[in-house]
Design a binder for these strands. Structure first.
Lengths: 336, 336
DNA sequence: CCAAAAATCTAAAACCTTTTAAATTTTACT
DNA sequence: AGTAAAATTTAAAAGGTTTTAGATTTTTGG
């Protein structure tokens, strides 16, 4: 069955393609098409179930009604929840979402950005960048493509951001631990740690200690390699057990580390340690409601990242937002 | 900066647009373009960093190089893992993925299918359908759009499927429970239960009992409403505690129910019950490795659903697969 | 060196919209 | 009724590729 096109409607109705196109694009009044004609056109189009060819339209207008989303890993619940919320906002506004994962690989991110803009012609791009610096985005020739960066901030790069208050949330949870009488609080961070979210959380931890007159000790700060999480966590525990008998809390900067920590603490060798420490985690996951151990956590407004960033990119695409916008969303502490 | 187009390359090189287009599409040999010329064209194009306008190409060829994926909820790890794997296969093959969620809403699914085909011009569609029957897909006018259905089977509908052996996996885990000397095994199912995956799991449960000469008792089969999981699980537990003192295992048909069950079992009122039953779950999630209780589970080859379905849809799109294909992936039992 | 065959290459049409510039019809006024 | 102005409507161009049908150039063989 051949697809209906403007010409078919035109013949059927006796109006020109031009007129029909105008009415369909809501420009009937603007071009002075009489109300009666407009109604007739809309009725016929609805009856015949005609929809304009997307490619012809995009070719002519240069607009694809697609927004790209680039994240490290779309199977990560954090990002897939963001994706879901972005998608639903876009859909309500007649746009569609195209998602790609970089696998935390800079080269891959580059290729994806170029591919999306060049070959797919997205109208805008939402990115949780893996880059350490903004060089690529500074030098890109796609300066007229709307960009919104989420989750991670690129240092010294003036752009549109929708991020979480990692520093504040981190400081808050550490403060809470201190109020609960914790004095020796270890911090399990992740390597590579140049990603802004991690940096900010580390700083929140340090500053909270300092403000509460506790010393920041390097030997309490453990860096866990992202591809050796379990091993590094256990090594760190061994070290802490030996050198910090007064240890009373471990603060993990993400949920993967926390998971590994929980697994490790079930081993016999850490039995004693396990019973005397509190565990805190930046990021709240469902599992914390099920396990026996009480985990203190910081919950991130994940949905809001999606909603805010998609609304922002639409505004930019439609020229409603011209200067750079910085949205910082607050976290909330979950005591258990 | 204006985008380069075929004409610019043509002028620059002194070859016609036709020739350049042919070479770029790998049809140089087919049309008898000399090797030397082909090399020159490719070199120039690479240097000038030209990429064809996607919309013009799509308009002319009718191919968008987009595949649509429709699932109930993209923020569900099960689906987002599938999405990730689909995406990476597609990307390797020059295609892109467009994802949408239906929220388990049939009307929404209809609209999304029509939108993707009609307005977005996807070349193929992968769907985990929410529909109870295949009526919509039987009557759709998009019969020439390649479709692959994943995860859920529509009854009596001859189509391309990539699904999991829900029946077999379910029977296997129940068999295992029986071998472990369980005699009174409750089954927590989910409502609405017309979704094929659930039906199949229920049947696997029943048949395993029967084959092992155990009676299938309705009072042991509890239906949990998907929007009241926690309450229904607890009500069911109360009922079982009262009427089935010999209860020694509970088999949950998905991980949400298991999670609710674990939460419930922490309550005082179920303390005794908790200590004497084994728990089994269809679907293996990370959490099971962390909690103290040993959960027996069936692990689904989630990645393979994504890989298989995307390879299949590419084959169909490219005419390499003409008759309907049914892929049934095996599960594996995880004893703990 | 010439005609025919083979090897290369290209002009123009087609894909289907949207938009510009202009044509046609209607209304208003003398 | 006749003209100017206003209200509607439309023809044609533009957007950038791929493909068809045909043109041009080169090679081959006598």
């Amino acid at each position: 069955m051949k697809r209906l096109q403007l010409e078919d409607i035109s013949k059927q109705l006796g109006y020109s393609k031009t007129l029909i196109s105008m009415v369909l694009n809501g420009k009937g009044d603007q071009y002075g098409i009489s109300k009666k004609t407009q109604a007739a056109v809309l009725k016929a189009v609805a009856e015949l179930d005609y929809t304009p060819n997307k490619f012809a339209r995009a070719l002519r207008t240069g607009k694809s009604f697609f927004v790209g989303l680039i994240v490290a890993d779309i199977s990560n619940p954090f990002y897939s929840t963001i994706a879901k919320n972005i998608e639903s906002v876009l859909y309500e506004n007649g746009y569609n979402l195209m998602v790609c994962s970089t696998g935390e690989n800079e080269e891959h991110e580059k290729r994806l950005v170029e591919m999306m803009i060049n070959q797919q012609g997205v109208d805008g791009l939402i990115v949780a960048s893996t880059f350490k610096t903004a060089d690529f985005y500074n030098n890109t020739r796609y300066t007229n493509t709307p960009f919104v960066f989420i989750d991670r901030v690129l240092p010294l790069f003036n752009a549109n951001y929708v991020v979480i208050d990692n520093y504040g949330g981190s400081a808050e949870i550490v403060n809470h631990l201190i109020k609960q009488n914790c004095k020796t609080i270890a911090c399990f961070s992740i390597t590579p740690s140049y990603i802004s979210t991690i940096e900010d959380r580390v700083n929140g931890y340090k500053d909270a200690l300092t403000k509460n007159k506790l010393k920041v000790e390097d030997s309490l700060m453990k860096s866990i390699r992202f591809d050796r999480i379990q091993k590094d966590v256990e090594d760190s525990l061994n070290d802490l057990q030996k050198n910090h008998p007064s240890l009373d809390a471990i603060y993990c900067l993400n949920n993967n580390i926390t998971t590994a920590l929980l697994i490790a603490l079930r081993k016999k060798e850490f039995e004693k340690l396990a019973s005397k420490i509190k565990i805190a985690c930046f990021d709240d996951i469902d599992m914390f409601n099920i396990i026996d151990r009480k985990i203190i956590s910081v919950s991130q407004p994940v949905e809001d990242i999606g909603k805010n960033s998609s609304l922002l990119i639409l505004d930019i695409i439609n020229g409603k937002q011209t200067n750079k916008s910085n949205v910082v969303l607050s976290t909330s502490l979950i005591e258990r």
